[in-house]
Amino acid sequence: MTTTIFIDGGAGTTGLEIRERLADRPGLALLTLPEERRKDASARREALNDADIVVLCLPDDAAREAVSLIDNPRTRVIDASTAHRTAPGWVYGFPELSGRQRVAEATRVSNPGCYSTGFIALVAPLVRAGFIPHDWPLTCNAVSGYSGGGKAMIADYESAGAAAPAWSTYALGLGHKHVPEMRAHCGLTYPPLFVPAVVDTLRGMIVEVPLMLGAMPGTHVPATLRATLKDFYAGSPVVRVIDAYDPATLAVERLANTDRLDLFVFGSADGQQARLVAALDNLGKGAAGAAVQSLNLMAGLPEADGLRL
């Protein structure tokens, strides 16, 4: 049985990455529109309704419009935009967290944001286990390669050459679009204080959550947090909790060009402080790799097929 796939917005950065992971795979057939009809409303509507699974790589409003154009109960959707990440009726496309069976059976799947993936992977299991209180005031510091800004930012950085900024912070208005899903899918009372930045490398990401363990209720040691994460992700082909590591090698490009997610717990010698750290590729597990992982489950295929592991 062949599953037909239509990528709406397939000419964008994420869409192209997804297409690479699906190319020439048995059991999958990609529906494509000729360039001159790519933005034709009637052609898009036809493709959206002909496909078994649609992957939306569109701005939020365009993604909502695309969903409204689907007029049959058969077509299933993976939305890579922010539009549906906390929407009722949508399954969050993080199989390790939401459950593989839920994703496999879903008709509507929202693909996680890149920063959100790192934060939620670290925090949600520890909240569920009771190590982080739901109402604890969390902060999150993160850096991403400039490909996270799409074609426009890629062009800006690459045209600037040596004049490109080495590091730039942003979202100083404290309203980053990933914060609602970070809060919702970790079950937090308060939104985390999120501090994102862009660095002068094409791809890669580090997401960090510092914890003042000595000020938190209960007695928690870094080794316990690491063991909890390790148990939670046991058997995952994508997520690894790293035991032995050299902190000096934890560069933002650590997992560039892969679909893996590496998690770390660093602790102070007295156990009073910890740094939870996630390393991923913002275009891999942070975007295209996550979409393909969910698509595999929805199509009844092995979870890791086509992924760069």
Rank of each mutant, 00 (worst) to 15 (best):
L229C: 06
F266R: 10
G306H: 09
A299M: 04
P133N: 06
V91S: 14
G218V: 10
P237H: 11
P88H: 08
A269S: 14
V265G: 02
Q293H: 15
V238E: 00
M216H: 00
F6Q: 10
Y157C: 11
L28A: 11
D24I: 03
G89D: 12
A291R: 01
G161C: 11
G89P: 13
A234T: 14
L280K: 08
K285D: 07
S144T: 15
L69D: 07
G300S: 07
P88F: 09
A227P: 03
G286D: 06
D156K: 06
L33G: 07
R128T: 11
T107M: 09
E253K: 12
L202P: 15
Y146M: 07
G300F: 05
A164S: 13
H185A: 05
P192Q: 11
G130P: 12
D135G: 12
A269G: 06
G173V: 13
P125Y: 00
R308P: 11
L188S: 11
T139M: 13
T117M: 14
R128G: 03
G149Y: 02
P125G: 03
G306A: 12
V239Q: 05
M205A: 15
T249K: 05
R203K: 15
A66N: 06
V238W: 00
M182N: 07
M182G: 07
P88I: 13
L138I: 10
T224A: 15
M153H: 04
V221C: 03
A104C: 13
P210H: 10
A171I: 07
T249W: 01
V199W: 01
P196W: 05
G289K: 09
I70H: 10
V199T: 15
A11R: 09
D156R: 08
A291Q: 03
E208L: 11
T224Q: 15
A162D: 15
A251H: 11
A244S: 13
P165R: 09
L213M: 07
A269Y: 02
V143N: 14
F264Y: 15
G235H: 04
P59T: 03
S236Q: 05
A171V: 04
F94E: 01
S147H: 14
K230W: 00
A62R: 10
I120W: 07
V277D: 00
L56Q: 09
P165I: 12
P95G: 07
A87N: 10
R19Y: 05
L188F: 07
C57L: 02
L138S: 11
R38W: 02
K230S: 15
A106H: 01
A227D: 14
I78S: 03
S116M: 08
N296V: 12
L213W: 07
L250G: 00
S168C: 09
T258R: 11
V209D: 01
T219Y: 05
A279M: 05
T249M: 06
I7L: 15
L138F: 05
T258A: 02
Q101N: 02
R226Q: 13
P180V: 05
D135C: 00
E65I: 10
E253A: 15
A11W: 04
A104W: 12
N257C: 08
G118R: 02
V103M: 04
L56K: 02
A29V: 08
P73C: 08
V67Y: 07
S236I: 03
A279W: 02
T189K: 12
G130S: 11
Q101T: 14
A155V: 01
T82C: 10
T249E: 14
Q293F: 00
P247A: 10
G286Y: 00
G145Q: 08
G187N: 12
K230E: 13
L211R: 01
T2F: 04
E303G: 09
